[in-house]
Amino acid sequence: MNQNLFRSQTMNQNQACYVYPAAPATPGIVTPDVTFYRSIYMDGSITMDDGKVVTVWGFTDNANGMNNANQFPSPAIRVTEGQIVHTVLNVPQMLIHTIHHHGIEPAWQNDGVGHISWDVQGTYTYQWKPAHAGTYFYHCHTNTVLHAEMGMYGPLIVDPVPNPNDPAGTKRAFDGGPTYDVEAIWACDEIDPNWHTLPWWAGTCGGNVGLNNLQPKYFIITGVDGAKSALTAPGVAVKMSLGQTLLVRYIQAGYFPQKITFGGLTATVVASDGRPLPNPVQVQSIQACSAERYDCIIKPTKAGTYTVQIQHLHWITGAVVGTAKTTITVS
C-alpha cells in the first residue's frame, strides 16, 4: 500500500504523510475573556544529570509577538472556570503541530486533533469555555506518538470562580473543594533519547522507526531529571511550613504506567481528570496510566523531608524501569 500514500500538497518537503495542514477561521468566534499566544520551538534542550543533552520541543509564549525563551514543559495555561478562552497557535510554514487541551471537551474544530479537523500550519485560534475546575494539560496532537514524547506539553489549570464568602486570596481546588496554601505541579514523564533524534514527520509515511518501542533512559518531573536534580530543583521540590496544606497536581505525562508514593505522607485524592471525586480517598500511593491526573491534598503533621518517588513501570512486563524522585520539605 505504500505506493498510494497520501502526501500533503502544501508542503515543499515530501516527508510527511497523513497530515492535514490548514488554518481556517474559528467558527462562532467571539471576543474572549482571556487569550494565550503559543508558537513552537523545536531546538530546545535539557541537560540530564549524567551530562547528556537531550533535544526537546515545545510551545513558546509569544504574546505581543515576542517569542519568549524555550520553556520545558511549555508555559502553563491557567484560566478560571466559565471564561471564554482563546489559545492562538502560530505554526511557521513547513511545520505542522496542534494544541489539544487534554480533558477539555470543546467543539471538534477546537479539539486540536489533526485527522478529524486539521493540523495547524499558520495561525489558528482555539476557542473554548472550561466548565469544570481542575487539572488538565495541553499537548500537540500531530504525529502524537513522537511530538508528545518530544515534550510538546504544558500544564493547563482551571481554577474555580472565587467564592465571595472566602477571604481574599483563598485558593480552592474546585468550587466547594478543599483550600490549599502551597501548590505543586508534577508532570512526570520518561525519555527515550533515541526518539529525540527523530524528525517531526518520522514514521508517518511508513517504515519502522521504532515508535512501537519506547526504551526510556531518563525519568523527569516537570522537565527536571528525577535522578538527582528534581530532589532540590525550585519549582519541583516543595518547601512548606507545618500547618500548611499542599495541593499536588500530578499529571501522568509519560506513556508507561507510573506509581507515585508520597514518602510516607498520606494524600487525600479529591479530584481526577478535572472532576471532583464523589468521595475523596486517602492513599499512600497511586498507580496511574498515561494522561491521568490526580489532585492530592497533603497536610503533613510532622516537620521533615519526605522523598516522593515516581516509579515507571514497563507497559508490558510491569517491571520498574526507572525511578524519579523529588522532596516535600516541611519546616
Binding site: Y18, E105, A107, W108, K129, A148, T204, G207, L211, Y255
Partner: peptide, 27 residues
Amino acid sequence: DAYPPVTTGRYPMHLHNEMTQTAGGGL
C-alpha cells in the same frame, strides 16, 4: 467546554500510551 455550545461533532478515542497508535514501528 464548547463555545458556542454544540450537540454534533466527531471526536477520537485513542490509547494514550501512543505506541499503540502506530503500525510497523511508524504510521
